[in-house]
């Protein structure tokens, strides 16, 4: 686990994401998903870049099926941006770092 990325579970989702003061980016992933492994390092770089403004979190959907189901997620990798507990943006599939940076800047 990279520094600055919080591993969250179904149990901690409410407290860490929904009730967070800071905006939160949650990376829904699973170990069997190739593109998830590919996007992981990009999210880690973003965490280094934006970690002071945004909380970065990872949710392993294999161990935590409730949270993704709640948001209708049936594809990974999916990144969801939460602000004050509400979804402000959602991106599915491999995405260039530049596009993710633009999305983050637009919601900050």
């Amino acid at each position: 686990m990279a520094e600055g990325i919080l591993e969250i579970s179904d149990d901690s989702f409410e407290a860490e994401v929904i009730n967070s003061d800071k905006p939160v980016l949650v990376d829904f992933w699973a170990p069997w998903c190739g593109p998830c492994k590919a996007i992981g390092p990009i999210v880690e770089e973003l965490a280094t870049e934006f970690g002071d403004k945004i909380k970065f979190a990872k949710c392993n959907i294999d161990n935590n099926p409730v949270s993704p189901a709640k948001f209708g997620i049936k594809a990974i990798p999916t990144l969801i941006f939460f602000k004050q507990g509400k979804i402000v943006d959602q991106i599915t599939g491999m995405t260039a770092k530049s596009k993710l940076e633009k999305t983050i800047n637009s919601i900050l």
Binding site: P35, C36, A75, I76, T78
Partner: peptide
């Protein structure tokens, strides 16, 4: 991402 996909392994 909520039913439409093109990645079976994902």
């Amino acid at each position: 991402g909520r039913g439409i996909s093109s990645c079976a392994t994902c």
